[in-house]
Design a protein around this nucleic acid. Structure first.
Lengths: 232, 232
DNA sequence: GTTGCGCCAGATGTGTACAACTGACCCCGA
DNA sequence: TCGGGGTCAGTTGTACACATCTGGCGCAAC
């Protein structure tokens, strides 16, 4: 029995499928599965200790989320992230982030703040290691932590969906990034959020996150333009 | 062979499933399937001339869209629309509507305007009939027409998803509504959109739609409060 | 050497039998 | 009459066999 199968075989029904879904999504968002790579239902089913039928449910859910695309006779291909689509997603995410403090905002608890402080510490520890896998994991965990602060369920779902759709873009430029600067930026964002959280100012949380997305898009645009110039 | 099966059996693969999905979604949004009603995979599969496997795909997609909920040993239940959830959805839709003219707006063509004029005519014709089925169909068609004007794909998907989630709320108050007033309001909204479309002012389109959603939420709130008062 | 055709391993899509579970009905006893 | 427990018809969840299709490889003709 594979480790993955051992981890999920004691769960039952819907929970098991949720765990498998999260795990495969994690692999896609951390580039363990590269864009364009063909996943195979049979291999995944065997790894997780289930038959093809529930594994296909998971993959279809990922297809609705635009993370994979099933093609008959070929495989289930991990999607690529095109810049135009990414720009539209980021522009939407910016607007959605503004709403965090406006739509049914939830007052942050001491636990929320503590969880965010743990992330801040992990980010600080990351400075020297340049571990891109841990960076990816931190990014996903940060998002999840932020989502717990969103009071409006439909807003939370929408934010989460759009986030995962493009989360892997950073890792694909591994060497091209100024690592220290990226860590600095990330740590600064978490710091800003913590300041706002400690005074229960969810509007500031939303706007700070919005600004982070905005600046990310600017950097992506610069990076893409530089690449195109280099190619032409 | 049932009529539904005859209509879809010449399509193949993904298209066939899309057609079935749209049809069942339509039935839910027009209250042909009442909230709480248990749909049966076997019966639906037989009606559409497919086996349970693809029909389950469709139902799972509807479950992701929060329109049904599968429960083992019971059936696939059409969800109910609670007011708190509805309020959150409407508040999000209001914000999303504002973005129609801001995120990648698309210039309306003569065809777009013509299509909207057809809807206006249908709305006018509806005034005397009080045909709630046609009202529901018109509402869905209007939404679809509006969505063709949205340039940003992620925004369009999100708007559509949130719309369908609550679209059936109107029909459940069939007798309680002032029919003539509802038709008037609807016709006025289409009229406002047409004015904006004719001058290619997509911002006005978005804001007009936002206002329509806002006033709808107000009326829903009034209706709910009146019902609760009446009950208590 | 190049091109084109055909075969085929292997992938996803579909149908079906069986397992697991739920809710209601019925019957029996107090 | 009412309460409780067992039985069972009917439903969704799972596994698997088969149908259908794709892309690549190899061979033959030119």
């Amino acid at each position: 029995m594979t480790p993955a199968a051992a981890a999920v075989d004691l769960l039952s029904g819907r929970e098991r499928l949720d765990v498998i879904h999260r795990e495969i999504r994690r692999r896609i968002c951390t580039l363990e599965y590269a864009p364009g790579e063909a996943l195979k239902e049979t291999a995944l089913a065997e790894e997780f200790g289930v038959s093809r039928t529930p594994m296909r449910q998971v993959l279809q859910r990922l297809e609705f989320e635009s993370l994979v695309e099933s093609r008959r006779g070929v495989g289930t291909l991990v999607t690529r992230v095109e810049f135009d689509a990414l720009r539209e997603v980021y522009e939407l995410r910016m607007k959605l982030a503004e709403m965090i403090g406006e739509l049914s905002p939830r007052a942050p608890t001491a636990e929320d703040i503590a969880a965010m402080e743990v992330l801040e510490a992990r980010c600080r520890a990351l400075r020297d290691t340049q571990d891109s896998r841990e960076f990816a994991a931190l990014n996903l965990d940060f998002h999840e932590c932020l989502m717990t602060l969103v009071g409006s369920a439909p807003l939370r779902e929408t934010l989460s969906r759009q986030f995962h759709r493009t989360a892997r873009i950073w890792l694909s430029w591994d060497e091209a990034l100024d690592w220290a600067e990226e860590i600095d930026r990330f740590e600064r964002e978490i710091g800003e959020l913590l300041v706002a959280l400690r005074v229960s100012d969810m509007r500031s949380v939303g706007y700070a996150h919005r600004n982070h997305i905005s600046m990310s898009l600017l950097r992506i645009r610069r990076h893409v333009e530089r690449s195109r110039t280099g190619e032409g």
